[in-house]
Design a protein around this nucleic acid. Structure first.
Lengths: 94, 94
DNA sequence: CGGTATCCAAAGTGATACTG
DNA sequence: CAGTATCACTTTGGATACCG
């Protein structure tokens, strides 16, 4: 699956994994620099791929929460060490 | 590093890791469907990032071998389970 | 054999505005 | 709040031809 090669995908999976059930706005804040459309698309793709679940609450104001599915959790476990390694490397070379 | 998000990068790292010192043509064959320019660029980026080493032999005909650096090997170890998971998943859903 | 240079098409991404 | 729709820009990837 080259979905992994989409921008922010790895980070999104890890962010959702770390923040548990998390709202759209929180994910957006966690990045700070991603357009609504891109993040929305990514969330959609991940949900579609069975990696994320979207829970929609019929409230006012509306609330939507994202969380990892079992498969998403599996992937997240694989991704975390990768992300740590990359960040560690960035520090070292910067 | 979003180099990881480039097409074929994960696969290239794993292929080089699996085939040991490997020649350009062999890598190309391992994919079968990647243009010279793209593969060449990828190899270049990875070498530049310190993940690959390029050994050039002054022979006729020319021979060039690629291999993982220590860091490349580290990354490869992180990537392998990921790749296996993805392939396994593809099988299941296909 | 092992690339590089060039040009082109396609896809991805972002900004913005608007809806429920 | 949580998106969707639209549109233009930027980046990527592919094909081809040529060089060492």
């Amino acid at each position: 699956m080259d979905l992994l090669s989409r921008k922010y995908v790895i980070e999104v999976v890890c962010v959702v994994g770390a923040l548990g059930p998390v709202r759209y706005g929180e994910i957006e804040s966690a990045f700070g620099e991603v357009s609504t459309s891109t993040l929305s698309t990514r969330l959609d793709e991940l949900t579609d791929a069975g990696l994320l679940m979207r829970e929609r609450y019929a409230e006012i104001p509306p609330r939507v929460e994202y969380d990892l599915t079992d498969e998403g959790t599996e992937l997240c476990e694989l991704l975390k060490p990768l992300l740590r390694w990359v960040e560690n490397r960035d520090d070292t070379e910067g």
